[in-house]
Structures are given as structure tokens and as C-alpha cells.
Design a protein around this nucleic acid. Structure first.
Lengths: 132, 132
DNA sequence: TTCTTAATAGTAATTATTCCTATTAAGGAG
DNA sequence: CTCCTTAATAGGAATAATTACTATTAAGAA
């Protein structure tokens, strides 16, 4: 009995997200693959990205004033977003604190699946430009 | 020279957001006020909520699979979202760690304005229902 | 090779939010 | 208090992001 099928689209979408650090939006993933898969549907990209995010293979990150982004790196790290130019980058913290999940589970009664932290501010370039 | 005018809409929108702990969406704020302000425009609600969020009077929180929410409580705290029913609640941590902002500013070169952390999981009720 | 059906392509529909413009009204000046 | 400038609003159109729908395709088990 089949549960899930391996398609060319599926594996290419996963490779694309894993192969970049740009945290692409669904539309950007679609663009990245438009050459290799002729006729790739944006709906297919969305469906697969959502499945992969739900199964924990990738991360889906909701950002204010931006379409959702996807990250192939599921190791614990933060994200920083520039409010002016939208630049979106990783921040790897050697002391990344995962203990809060357990504390919150105990105190709130929730069963937690994940958390996402996004820092908002001005990137160095936009900071300079603003001063002019 | 005038810079900003105080309107009935503006003050009622701010009161509405500050007067609830439900983290309403723009549409929900619009609904809350539809009785007191006849003809209140949804665009006006969005515009004011955005201004207030930009000026730091309230918080705007982007959540996966949900329209943005607004919080009148700007004191440092986290949010927990139920992936099944969408329930959205506060989590006040006595040890809320704000030191990471400074560390990230130093290491990334960004000037940070704020950060938002959302925990995703299953609320106690949905957790029970799932087991049945 | 055949057959079942999961997955896709393509498009329509929905949702969330912003943009546009004529009109209203806040509040400073006279 | 009245007038005047223009910030802010109402209402609706436009845009952006994402999901839903359906006929068709193609995994992969038998």
C-alpha cells in the first residue's frame, strides 16, 4: 500500500531549499526551479513546501511585511530581518537556549512542536543610508 | 504646524487593542468597534494599527497560517499558538532574556528594533481531542 | 504490463492587506 | 467663533499571498 510517492518535483524542491541560505519564498523556489522543471506549478511548490515544513524536514518562517520564507537548515538558530530592505539572515548562537520549550510546556499545558524567533531592525547598509 | 491629529477612530482603536488580551487581528478590531463607530473603515483600522506598531505603542505579530495579530501589551513576553485551533496566548517568563538583542547587534551589525518569538504546538484541549 | 491513485499543472477562488480618491473634520490662525 | 489648511477617514478598487479545485499524469505495487 502506497502512502507517498517520490516525484522529481518533490526532490528538486527539497534540494533547492536545502541548497541555499537565502531563505527563499515559495515564489523564489518556483523561480529557482523553472529552468530544470518545465511547467512546474507554483501550487506544487507551495504544497510540497508546506508538507516538508509540517513533517519537520524544513522550516517555514512567517515574517512581518513579507511572504513566508523557507529554510532548509533545521538546526536551532535565529533570524534577523531588515525592516528597510528586507534582507533576511541567519544568526547562529553558540548558546542557543532550548530549555524554554520545556518550561512553557509545563506551565502552559501545550505540547510544543517548534518556535520561531525573528529579530527586526536595520541592517548595516540601511543604517548608513538612513543617516544621510 | 500640525503633525498628527487625534481622531475618535485612532483613540478607540488603541483602547480596543489595549483593553483585550485576545491579540486580535485587524478584522477583529474592526468588528469590536463596529458598534461604537458607525462606518468605521477596515482600511482605517489597518493604517492605525500599523502606525501604532511602528511607533512602538503596540506590537504586531506575524503568525503562520493566520492573519497578523496585534497586542496592546508591549511588555516583554512570548506567545504560544495552537496549530490546530489557532488559540493564541501569552507566556510571561520571569526570566525573560533580553540580552540576546545586544549580542546580535554586536555580532551582526544590525541595529535592532524588536524581536518576536512564537511557540507553535497543540493546546491542552486539541491534544486531548487528537488522542481520541 | 496493467492498474490504482498520489501528485501535478493550470487555473480559479479566497484571504489578507495595501492603495487610491473624494470627502470629512482636527485644530491652528485670525 | 469662523475660516482655512491638510491630516485622516470611508469606501472601494487593486494587489499580493496562498489555498482550493479538477482534469490529467505518472509513481510504483501487483
Amino acid at each position: 500500500m502506497i502512502k507517498e510517492r517520490n516525484t522529481k518535483q518533490k526532490s528538486l524542491i527539497l534540494s533547492a531549499v536545502r541548497g541555499t541560505k537565502t531563505h527563499p519564498t515559495a515564489e523564489e523556489v518556483h523561480l529557482m526551479l523553472s529552468d530544470s522543471v518545465q511547467g512546474l506549478s507554483l501550487g506544487t511548490v507551495y504544497r510540497n513546501l508546506n508538507h516538508m515544513a509540517e513533517s519537520g524536514q524544513i522550516r517555514r518562517i512567517s515574517v512581518t511585511n513579507s511572504p513566508d520564507r523557507f529554510d532548509g537548515d533545521i538546526s536551532p538558530h535565529h533570524h534577523i530581518c531588515c525592516n528597510t530592505c528586507g534582507k533576511f539572515c541567519d544568526f547562529f548562537d553558540t548558546d542557543y537556549d532550548t530549555s524554554l520549550d520545556k518550561v512553557i510546556e509545563e506551565k502552559s499545558g501545550f505540547t510544543l512542536i517548534k518556535h520561531e524567533t525573528v529579530f527586526y531592525g536595520l541592517c548595516p547598509e540601511c543604517n548608513l543610508n538612513q543617516k544621510n
